[in-house]
Structures are given as structure tokens and as C-alpha cells.
Design a protein around this nucleic acid. Structure first.
Lengths: 109, 109
DNA sequence: CAGTATCCTCGGTGATACTG
DNA sequence: CAGTATCACCGAGGATACTG
């Protein structure tokens, strides 16, 4: 997500630049529970198109938050795993979850 | 920001629904240091148009994060103040700032 | 001073079809 | 299975001018 220009570069906006947007939080959240295949991500997030899922995963990869492993098999297999940097976002998500639970009405899954 | 549909309603996305987007973090951050007038916000965030600033402030107000106080004077004076709920976002921003400082290259103001 | 009112641009997202 | 390619849309955000 294009959050802001360099004038306002600050750690908070830098973080939102990486985890903000419509799909990245849920993708990262799903991957927090461990390595997932492309298809598994697609099943867990059924309303995202494969095109957009691919794009978001590529961005998270180039931001160093996850690793893409492609196995040269038939049928193809591609796995996505959080890097330590990606996993370290847990504390951020946790703080957001606490605030959301305390201050928002959240319907449960 | 339209983050996601109800299927993925979770505390994290609920939080991002409120503080995500291009301008809200910086607006909230500026207001963390105390009540500000419309013009003061505009000066501190010079690249936001007044139209968009107005829109964002209205959304933050209807989300209960800030209070808008209008003084019937000439010239007009309008002040924006964080509610306790808005101020309670400090811990969220703090966690994001820590992560950003540890994991991103951030140019200083 | 603190906004509105209009008009417009652009990029993120979606739908659909195709492929190694 | 895990993608690409193409086309299309829509709405957040921006530019500019006007106002109580």
C-alpha cells in the first residue's frame, strides 16, 4: 500500500506500508500458523482472486516477510513460509487484536 | 478503509478498518500530542488536501476516535481532540513503531 | 478560518479465460 | 496445481475554485 511520501516517513507508516491494505493482514495471519501451499491459502481466503493473491504474496516476498519455495514436481507445488521478520509481526498483530477486542464489535468466525 | 468483508471479521482487521489508510495514522499521531485546530493539522500535514483532511476527520469522529468542537466565532475555530478510545491506540502505534524501527529503514524527519 | 463543490485521474481490484 | 494474460471497473484521493 502506498501509505505516504518520505516527508512523513516514520516507523509507524513504514510498518503500515508493509502490513496494511486489504489482504496482507489476513494472509500473514493465516501463515502465522505455519507453512501453507498456494491452494491452501486460496481455500482459507476464498474471496481473494488467485491473481490478487499471487500479487500480494509477491509483494510480501520482496518485502522479506515470507519465503516462496517452488518444488519442480508434476503437479506443481509451491509453499509459502514466514521469515523470522514476518513472524516477528506477531506482537504487532497481537496489540491490534487487543485493541480491536476492547474497542470494536467484532463478529466471530 | 474497506479492509475486508464480514467473513474475515477479526479484531486485527477491525482495527485496521479504523486506523488503516493513507492519512489516518499520521492524523492520529499528530493529535496524540494534544488538541489541534484544523489549520494546525493542515500545517503539520501539508501534503493532504483540505477536502481529504476534512473527510478523514469526519470518519475518525464517527468512529469515536476524536471529538470535533466548533466555536461559533468570527473567524471560525474548530478543534479536534482524541477521545480516550483514540488515545488508547497509543499502544498499537507504539508496537508498530518498534517493529518498524527494528525491521525497516526509516528516514528521520 | 475552515471548510464545500465539482470535476477528474489513477491504481488497486475483480472477472474471465488460458497455460506449463 | 499454481499460476498468467487481458480487459474492465470503481472509488479513494487530488486540483481547483468558491463560501459562510
Amino acid at each position: 500500500m502506498k501509505v505516504n511520501n518520505e516527508i512523513y516517513d516514520c516507523p509507524v507508516t513504514a510498518t503500515l506500508e508493509v502490513i496494511g491494505g486489504k489482504w496482507k493482514p489476513i494472509i500473514l495471519y493465516v501463515l502465522m500458523s505455519g507453512t501453507k501451499r498456494f491452494g491452501a491459502l486460496s481455500v482459507r481466503i476464498p474471496t481473494i482472486s488467485r491473481k490478487v493473491l499471487t500479487e500480494q504474496l509477491r509483494e510480501l516476498e520482496s518485502d522479506g516477510l515470507l519465503i516462496r519455495r517452488q518444488y519442480k514436481e508434476i503437479p506443481p507445488r509451491v509453499e509459502y513460509t514466514l521469515t523470522p521478520e514476518g513472524q516477528s509481526l506477531w506482537s504487532v498483530f497481537n496489540e491490534m487484536a487487543i485493541w480491536g477486542n476492547n474497542n470494536r464489535r467484532v463478529s466471530q468466525k
